[in-house]
């Protein structure tokens, strides 16, 4: 029961990771398959990637998706950070229970319900469906994820730092930008990244709330997947996986570096 890698721990981790990664790995391998039949290996080829460049529909959808993801992640980060501040810093205020309920509920709410209800709202207020309705919908559900990520950082935030800044003559708004924000920035950035990928990834809510000219990439992929597996889709997926993997690994290496440098400096300070 000591810390360490017993055969049981090693094998459960190994099996778990095999289960998580083999399907993705196979998908990536078969995107380089020369054959149109996705299950028969016909030799190495990058032809499906070149074919993508000519697929206007897919490229359009990718462009729409990126725009929606960027705009919604920006707004969601601002609103989510505000919500996190409201929940952690301001103690009790009128309707706090309702507010925290509205923050946590979207995290587990089935997407079909969120999507349907937002669509019916847009219809009821006669809002033209398209880019902006999808963006508004994405802001709404991703801001809650941002709020939770930022909130978990804020609860360990030493509020005496804020008090010290106020005590030294810095007004509240200025204190937020000079003290609080720089210190919670890593959480805010990961909140942004989470919002961005969730928006990039969303199929159901986008399908409900979209309108003419605002077909997103997941919707495009979905409609093709329903017709069967094609190597072209494998190629799109591989590109998306590659982008996400590179960004996530780079981000984690940067934070790990900063953390280990910090620890080294702290150790040096203890000795000196």
């Amino acid at each position: 029961m000591r810390r360490g890698l017993t055969w049981f721990n090693v094998s459960s981790i190994a099996l778990g990771f095999a289960f998580l990664y083999i399907p993705i790995l196979l998908l990536v391998i078969y995107s380089f398959n020369d054959s149109r039949l996705v299950t028969v290996w016909g030799g190495f080829s990058t032809r499906w990637y070149w074919a993508l460049l000519e697929n206007e529909q897919l490229l359009d959808a990718a462009w729409v998706t990126l725009r929606v993801a960027f705009v919604s992640a920006c707004v969601a980060t601002v609103l989510g950070t505000m919500a996190a501040l409201a929940l952690t810093r301001y103690g009790r205020f009128f309707g706090r229970t309702l507010f925290s309920g509205m923050i946590y509920a979207p995290l587990v709410m089935p997407e079909v319900i969120t999507g349907l209800s937002l669509l019916l709202l847009f219809v009821a207020v006669d809002f033209d469906r398209g880019f902006w309705t999808v963006t508004l919908a994405h802001i709404t559900f991703t801001m809650c994820f941002v709020a939770v990520v930022v909130q978990s950082r804020l609860v360990t935030f030493d509020t005496t730092l804020v008090e010290a800044a106020l005590d030294l003559g810095s007004p509240p708004l200025k204190t937020f930008f000079t003290i609080t924000l720089p210190l919670i920035l890593p959480a805010v950035i990961s909140g942004f990244m989470l919002a961005f990928t969730l928006s990039l990834d969303d199929l159901v809510i986008a399908s409900f709330t979209t309108g003419p000219g605002a077909t997103t990439l997941p919707m495009r992929i979905y409609s093709q997947v329903r017709l069967g597996v094609t190597p072209e889709i494998n190629a799109v997926c591989t590109i998306l996986i590659a982008i996400v993997t590179v960004v996530v690994i780079a981000a984690s290496i940067v934070t790990k570096r900063a953390e280990s440098q910090r620890q080294a400096e702290e150790r040096a300070a203890m000795k000196g």
Binding site: L161, L166, D167, P171, I179
Partner: peptide
């Protein structure tokens, strides 16, 4: 009078030094 307009300053128990 808010704390940032009071002519008193405080040394905190945790020191509250700005880590950044």
């Amino acid at each position: 009078v808010p704390p940032y307009r009071r002519p008193v300053n405080m040394m905190f128990q945790s020191y509250a030094l700005f880590p950044h």
